[in-house]
Simulated assay, not measured.
Amino acid sequence: MTLIAIEEHWVTPDLTTALKALPRPDESLAFNEMGDHRQRLEDLGGDRIATMDAQGIDISILALTPPGTHPLSPGQARDLSRAANDTAIAAVDRNPTRFRALSTLPMSSPEHIVDELVRAKSLGHVGTMVYGRAGDRFLDDPAYDEFFAAAAELGQPVFIHPQIPSDAVRDASYRGFGELTDLALATFGWGWHLDTATAALRLILRGTFDRHPALQIVLGHWGEMLLFWLDRADSLSRVADLQRSVSHYIRTNFHITASGMLNPALLQHALAVTTIDRLIFSTDYPFQHPTQDEINSFLAHFASDEDRHKFSSANAAALYGLEL
């Protein structure tokens, strides 16, 4: 059975240098330096493919690791987004049967986003990855509506990936325990996921999917906690005067990935609130390291070969226009 992983991270040395040179560098960059992560992130060739082979993964969809180019100045973001997109496609061209790529966009320069999205698609990018905000501008800011309109028209799915919450949010909710615990609470322990779920919910409440019904969004980590609170979130639809319930948008405009969290209980809950057609495999490389045995064991929890096939490859192929 073909296995496609859609959230497989990488980074360029130039981008790492630019991010570290900021007056207040993103603290989550520390995760890129743990163990052999930096080496794995920068490799777009043999070692990465060897890991894929060991896991039984046929195709990886490359996506820049957080925070992408979001924290950079408009000029830097434009230049480094363009360079990253060129580098990713070069990797795809070298290994066209093993790689595809999601573009990165200069979200700190809204007037240049659509041009780069169009250019990236022309190069062969199958979608894009963004984060919940750039600086103080939320993803649902009206400045980004042209971007979402273009993504819908071009058939470019938008993956909203976690990033560290703002300093204001961290001061209010994620500090006071010590440096390492503060960082863990604000990132993989809680903050990353709540921040991303909030960004997705804000897009819904802004009426984004009423204006752009063809727009498709991807959330990792089994929906970034949002799937677990839909009974309450649905009540927001009336208050916000939306055309449909929050649950409806989740089932029709959102796709959900596993992000290497191969827990059957999470799968069963996801299936209770959305459909098998909306669930997609990913490993969150190199931050999660499921073995082939662990992957195969998880795949055994699907109700049928058809469902297993959808999760393993068919849904990703349909969403990203891949020919298998």
Score class of each variant (00 low, 15 high):
239 V>E: 09
232 R>Q: 02
298 F>R: 11
202 R>L: 05
281 F>N: 00
132 G>P: 10
245 S>E: 07
162 P>C: 04
295 I>K: 06
300 A>Q: 11
259 S>A: 03
212 H>P: 01
94 R>K: 15
154 L>A: 14
30 A>Y: 11
114 V>H: 10
276 I>N: 13
126 V>E: 10
8 E>R: 01
7 E>H: 09
92 V>H: 10
299 L>G: 07
181 T>D: 12
309 H>P: 00
56 G>W: 13
120 A>K: 06
67 P>F: 04
82 R>C: 07
323 E>V: 15
103 S>V: 05
6 I>K: 01
54 A>I: 02
181 T>R: 15
113 I>R: 00
10 W>S: 09
206 R>W: 08
46 G>E: 12
292 Q>R: 15
156 Q>A: 14
196 T>H: 10
52 M>C: 02
18 A>T: 06
193 H>N: 09
283 T>P: 05
39 Q>V: 11
299 L>W: 06
142 P>R: 04
133 R>N: 07
255 H>D: 01
302 F>D: 00
288 Q>R: 14
79 D>S: 15
119 R>D: 09
303 A>I: 03
131 Y>V: 12
144 Y>P: 03
126 V>A: 13
150 A>L: 02
104 T>L: 06
76 Q>I: 00
284 D>A: 10
303 A>Y: 08
139 L>Q: 08
83 A>P: 09
224 E>A: 11
7 E>A: 04
238 R>M: 00
145 D>Q: 13
63 A>D: 08
25 P>S: 12
173 S>A: 15
199 A>L: 15
139 L>V: 07
3 L>G: 04
154 L>H: 11
308 R>K: 03
101 A>I: 04
138 F>N: 14
27 E>W: 09
174 Y>N: 07
309 H>Y: 08
198 T>R: 12
9 H>S: 10
249 Y>E: 00
25 P>V: 07
258 A>R: 00
265 A>D: 14
217 I>C: 10
228 F>C: 04
94 R>V: 10
66 P>T: 13
205 L>F: 00
94 R>G: 06
143 A>M: 02
92 V>W: 06
299 L>F: 14
64 L>W: 03
320 Y>A: 10
281 F>D: 09
259 S>K: 02
302 F>R: 04
138 F>P: 09
166 S>G: 14
147 F>H: 04
186 A>H: 01
105 L>G: 07
135 G>Y: 08
85 N>H: 00
318 A>S: 15
38 R>V: 02
189 G>A: 12
118 V>C: 11
129 M>R: 09
131 Y>R: 14
252 T>K: 05
98 R>P: 08
19 L>V: 02
308 R>P: 05
112 H>N: 08
291 T>S: 15
121 K>Y: 07
131 Y>W: 15
117 L>A: 08
202 R>W: 01
128 T>Y: 14
205 L>W: 05
297 S>E: 11
300 A>C: 01
84 A>K: 02
219 L>Y: 12
321 G>Q: 07
179 E>H: 14
273 V>E: 12
225 M>R: 10
122 S>Y: 09
160 I>M: 11
178 G>S: 13
197 A>C: 13
65 T>I: 15
